[in-house]
């Protein structure tokens, strides 16, 4: 399979691999999986008092595209607000990494992971904004 140079770069030099303390109240953890490929992805964010994502880590077991997608997302979300992070679309990830159509679902996984991480953080903070709920409901309905 022909990976783009950007995918290979992220695959060989993944950014922000690792873990944050999932029990920390300032950390949001998103875990998603794609059974078709057996991919498992964990994406975590640390949010500061101003609601800005100041750190992000990921761990992905899967193909090069899934690793590159999550690596790219951790780079993108740093310095962003939660709403900005929620606005990241898989099409932007796919475009940046020049993913072929058969690998688009890897970018969808990364989008789901960051959304799940923001959701988890918001839930920990107690007041999950109403607007965020339907997206999770939509993601669940896809089962």
């Amino acid at each position: 399979m022909a990976y783009s140079e950007k995918v290979i770069d992220h695959y060989e030099h993944p950014r922000n691999v690792g873990a944050l303390d999932k029990d920390d109240s300032g950390v949001g953890t998103g875990m998603v999986g794609a059974p078709a490929c057996g991919d498992v992805m964990r994406l975590q964010i640390r949010v500061n008092g101003q609601g800005i994502i100041e750190d992000a880590k990921f761990k992905t077991y899967g193909c090069g595209s899934a690793i590159a997608s999550s690596s790219l997302v951790t780079e993108w979300v740093k310095g962003k607000t939660l709403d900005e992070a929620m606005a990241i679309k898989n099409s932007q990830i796919a475009e940046e990494l020049e993913l072929p159509p058969v690998k688009i679902h890897c970018s969808v996984l990364a989008e789901d992971a960051i959304k799940a991480a923001v959701e988890d953080y918001r839930k920990k903070q107690g007041g999950a904004p109403v607007a965020a709920q339907p997206e999770m409901a939509g993601a669940q309905a896809a089962h």
Binding site: G33, P35, A36, V40, R42, Y61, D112, H143
Partner: peptide, 18 residues
Amino acid sequence: ALDERVKVADPELLMTQM
């Protein structure tokens, strides 16, 4: 059930796999 668009969000399953 194994369509590539189907995603899993079951935290227990994912944690075990991870």
